[in-house]
Design a protein around this nucleic acid. Sequence first.
DNA 1: TCTGGGGTCCTAGGACCC
DNA 2: TCTGGGGTCCTAGGACCC
Length: 428
Amino acid sequence: MGNLDNSDGDSIGDELDILHVDMDAFFAAVEVLDDQSLKGRPVIVGGSGSRGVVAACTYEARAFGVRSGMPMFRARKVCPQGVFLPGRFKRYVELSRELHVVFETFSPFVEPISLDEAFLDVSGAHLLFGSSLEIAKSLRKEIYGKLSLNCSVGIGRTRLVAKLASKKAKPNAKRVPGIGYFEDGIYRVGSDDEKKFLFSLNVGEVWGIGPVTTSSLEKMGVHTVEELSKVEYQVLVSKFGIAKAAWLKSITSGSTQEQLVSKTESKSVSHEETFNTDLDSHSTLDIHLVRLCDAVTRRLRAGKLKASTVVLVLKYSDFTRITRQIKLASPSNDPRTFLKEARSILSQIDVSSGIRLIGVSASGLLEAGGIEDQLSFEEINLEYESQDNLIEAIDEIRAKYGLNSLGPASINGSNTLKAKEHGDNQWG
DNA sequence: TCTGGGGTCCTAGGACCC
DNA sequence: TCTGGGGTCCTAGGACCC
């Protein structure tokens, strides 16, 4: 449909209204932007500890085989001439905000996926900006003009198609000739091309099909989306459950257009830390627990939130991950409450086999001061009230003088170096 | 020198109530 | 006294994403 007016199949009103915009090598590209001497070099952004992984890398680094998610030690091995940087999360957030301002000038319907990625529904923008392809071109131009950063844009009828299309728009993507339309960082999948496009993909390329599902499907002899389309629904149900089977089927059945979701409230706030070497004593773990409870509740307070559930996360040396949660008597963002509950959970867990990671997560979030947020009898106690004032004062001092200006005793004591390193490596 | 950190959603099982 | 189903809430784990 709507493919009669010109050779690339671009036209107004053919319902290809979803754009997926994805910055190219975002974190690494920002580092090059801010230090032009890095231009053309293999820049790798990632954790600086011995157990860090690659968060992003330039295409020059990819040429050496570096990939995001790869352990840093391996990246250093395959690319010893690389420029390894710890990353500057605040700077990425800053540019992300500018990016989203540009998005908003093209459509009021924006669904952010991450700092550097979003869906745009441009169905109402054609009169102003032209066809979806023309909008994509203007968008790329505008983003480069404002941020001096490159992005890739996928155009399709649904979010899934647009998302998969933007991958094919990337500088190093392999594209199948005769499917879709590619031009300068933009890949457009027309309605009449959609089935051919999806069927050409391996199942593992699909957004939402990860390594585990891919391997299950491959064991069934299913490697491509085309092969997946031929599998009986009931077979998928028995293998993956109803929800996932229905979703897998929807990939190939040409699902209808979904509404974009512009903004959602966070459902949890968490911090976790992987140690350079495994820890096997409660007392050492406790030092980290103090800091994590402090960090999580600080973020809750900054967002004017309280949590009704505290979750302790542990990862053992063998990568087994366990979670233990406790529901609070009343919602809280008080580090003392969090620490008390987290400690009581931790005390019941055998850590002698070695703990690689510890984390604290807050869920069941409520606005602080909401109707569910009545004071408990304990909190009405005057002594507590004065300590709450103290916590507020600490937050203010930190806002003025920086996060490390004040903190729990354990941060300012023997663990200072560690705390600083943690601060430098924060991703969010 | 093995494999981050911050999230979301789904599932399964048990407790409890009707 | 035995049997049983459904609904809801909670917990733990797992898959997946960037």
